[in-house]
């Protein structure tokens, strides 16, 4: 039976004290995951003694944009992310990913921190955040630590957050110079979708040469993982000479290397290949190499 005490924290400091003092605490922010677990009477909730509500902590609701760096407070909702003009203009693949999460009602409650901490294989924000080489800032009463988001994820629905820690924000550097990004998604319907597959691609170009490339599929592997092999392949090459279809096939192979042949592979292999191809084609076109 699920039986817990509800505690509301109004400041991050209050929340950290509770996390330090008490055991078996679960954090609730927007509630769009926790309430589903509650309805389904999940085992995880049976183990907790306290539900810590952080949804009222104003200091975690900020988006800070500095010259070279972005900080997204963990309680920023998907709706706010979506409305942010800077992202729409400069990091549009993040906006594109946020746009398709759940529905308006879900985006009004669901938070960036919740999406990251839930670590669902199909969580749409992961792909662009990984491509941006984001870090998470975790705070406890003992101090703070920064973890690369790739190191933060332990597995499907599992992260390396410690019991006394609160995810404070997600930070990433704004790509410099000439860069392009793209987000692709396949769903079974046109709204209220869980990604069947998605993919984020970010590349930095210098004199036509790919300086940096990050191709990150979502819902393709047990948990979001950058496809380093593809990145390595792309880096150093002339963008104009990249064959998107060929690269797409390589990305699909890379996926199957990780997952093995699964029941869904006959579909996901050609589909992921196509998403990667499209992302690369879009970027090439945007860079003026096609058309």
């Amino acid at each position: 039976m699920i039986d817990y005490q509800f505690i509301k924290a109004n400041t991050a400091a209050e929340a950290l004290k509770i996390l330090a003092d008490k055991n078996n605490v679960k954090i609730i922010a927007g509630g769009t995951d926790v309430l589903v677990e509650l309805h389904k009477e999940s085992r995880d909730l049976e183990m907790i003694d306290y539900l810590l509500d952080i949804s009222g902590i104003e200091e975690l609701k900020e988006i800070k944009i500095a010259e070279d760096k972005v900080e997204i407070g963990s309680l920023v909702t998907h709706s706010r992310l979506l409305k942010n003009k800077f992202f729409a203009e400069n990091i549009p693949f993040l906006t594109a990913a946020a746009k398709d999460i759940g529905s308006t009602q879900i985006r009004n409650r669901g938070t960036v921190g919740g999406n990251v901490c839930n670590a669902s294989p199909a969580a749409d924000l992961f792909a662009p955040l990984l491509a941006l080489e984001s870090e998470v800032v975790l705070r406890s009463q003992k101090g703070k630590r920064n973890l690369k988001i790739t190191d933060f994820i332990k597995g499907p629905y599992k992260t390396h957050i410690r019991n006394d820690e609160l995810l404070e924000k997600v930070v990433f550097k704004i790509p410099a110079g000439e860069y392009y990004c793209n987000f692709q998604k396949i769903g079974r319907r046109k709204a209220l979708n869980i990604s069947r597959l998605c993919l984020a691609f970010l590349t930095v170009i210098e004199d036509g040469v790919i300086k940096k490339a990050h191709l990150v599929p979502g819902a393709a592997t047990p948990y979001p993982t950058p496809f380093k092999k593809i990145d390595d392949y792309l880096e150093g090459k002339l963008l104009a000479e990249i064959d998107p279809a060929e690269t797409g096939k390589m990305a699909a192979d890379a996926m199957v290397e990780i997952t093995g042949e699964r029941w869904s592979t006959p579909y996901k292999r050609p589909a992921l290949s196509k998403l990667a191809e499209r992302a690369l084609s879009c970027v090439k076109e945007e860079a003026g190499y096609d058309g």
Binding site: I186, R188, W263, S264, P266, Y267, A271
Partner: peptide
């Protein structure tokens, strides 16, 4: 006529071959 049938001509089911 779901994603799988349209793309590869057959349905796929979890746990299936």
């Amino acid at each position: 006529l779901n994603l799988e049938r349209v793309l590869i001509g057959r349905a796929l089911h979890k746990g299936g071959k």
